[in-house]
Amino acid sequence: MQLTEDVNFTTEKKELLSEKIHDEILELIIKNASEEEQVLNEKRLVELFGVSKAPVREALIKLCSEGVLRNVPRYGYVVVKMKEKDARDILKLRCILELEALKDGFDAIVQYHLEDIKRHIDNAALMQQEPVDVWKVWEDNEAFHLLLASYADNQLLNKFLKESLSIQKRIYAQFSWNKKQSMDDQLDKEPHVGIYQALCDKDLEKAQELLRRDISSVL
């Protein structure tokens, strides 16, 4: 039993480090965005972050899966340029997925899950008292939208939504950096409170409209 616990603990630490490196690489890409081709080298990243190859490699693989990087053998990891159309397309996709999920899950939400949604909003309110960065804000936003969509009980829809949010993470961070030249951010719970209140009032149409506005406010 002790061995199993140690293995799980080690795996958890490894995953957390990989996630941290993932966000740091993404931040590096965002802060150095230019018209020129950006190429990342695994060995240099290992030296830069002072870690072993494993978490860097895992982070690079994840960034490739998210469409942020493209692996070119014997050359490096090329940064895939994000176009404005890509950002608009992700917003459209999210609207389709989330509005459908809200409609399908509406009855279950108003009967059984309003307290879960309120709990998430209350926890986010506590975070407002602390300095936060763009990653924390996006993490809270992502968790709220995935929670809301989960009540539709549609695994495929949730899979596509999670992938869309992973892609949009870069878009949101880039937008924030371009606007303020800072990765500091501020959590705004009011859009989520409005959606929650509409759900409490059992007003699906209003909840969908507020959800649409919240999704579109990212850009």
Rank of each mutant, 00 (worst) to 15 (best):
M1K: 14
Q2R: 12
E5H: 15
E5P: 15
F9L: 14
L17S: 11
S18A: 13
I21K: 07
I21S: 05
H22V: 08
D23H: 09
E24R: 10
I25D: 00
L26S: 02
E27G: 14
E27C: 11
E27W: 09
L28F: 04
I29K: 10
K31L: 03
N32P: 12
N32L: 11
N32S: 12
A33D: 06
S34T: 13
E35F: 04
Q38N: 10
V39Y: 01
E42Q: 10
K43I: 06
R44F: 02
E47S: 15
E47D: 12
L48Q: 08
L48K: 11
G50Y: 14
V51D: 12
S52R: 14
K53S: 12
P55T: 14
P55C: 12
P55M: 14
E58N: 07
I61F: 02
L63K: 07
L63G: 06
S65T: 00
N71H: 04
R74L: 05
V78R: 08
M82L: 15
E84F: 13
K85N: 12
D89F: 06
D89Y: 07
I90G: 02
L91V: 09
K92C: 01
K92A: 02
L93K: 04
R94T: 03
C95M: 10
I96L: 04
L97K: 12
L97E: 05
A101K: 07
K103I: 06
G105N: 07
G105M: 08
D107M: 13
A108R: 14
I109R: 05
V110E: 10
V110Q: 09
Q111V: 15
Q111K: 15
Q111M: 11
K118H: 13
R119I: 02
A124G: 04
L126P: 11
L126N: 06
L126E: 13
M127D: 08
M127N: 05
Q128N: 11
V134E: 02
V134A: 00
V137F: 01
E139I: 02
N141W: 05
L146F: 05
L147S: 03
L148C: 00
L148G: 02
A149V: 12
A149H: 09
Y151H: 08
N154K: 06
F160L: 13
L161Q: 01
L161K: 03
K162R: 10
E163D: 14
E163T: 10
S166F: 11
R170E: 06
I171K: 03
F175I: 14
F175P: 12
S176C: 04
W177P: 08
N178H: 03
Q181F: 08
Q181T: 10
D184W: 03
Q186V: 13
D188L: 06
D188W: 05
I195Q: 02
Y196Q: 02
L199N: 06
C200G: 09
D201H: 15
D201P: 10
K202I: 09
K206L: 15
K206Y: 09
A207N: 02
D214I: 00
D214M: 05
V218Q: 04
L219V: 14
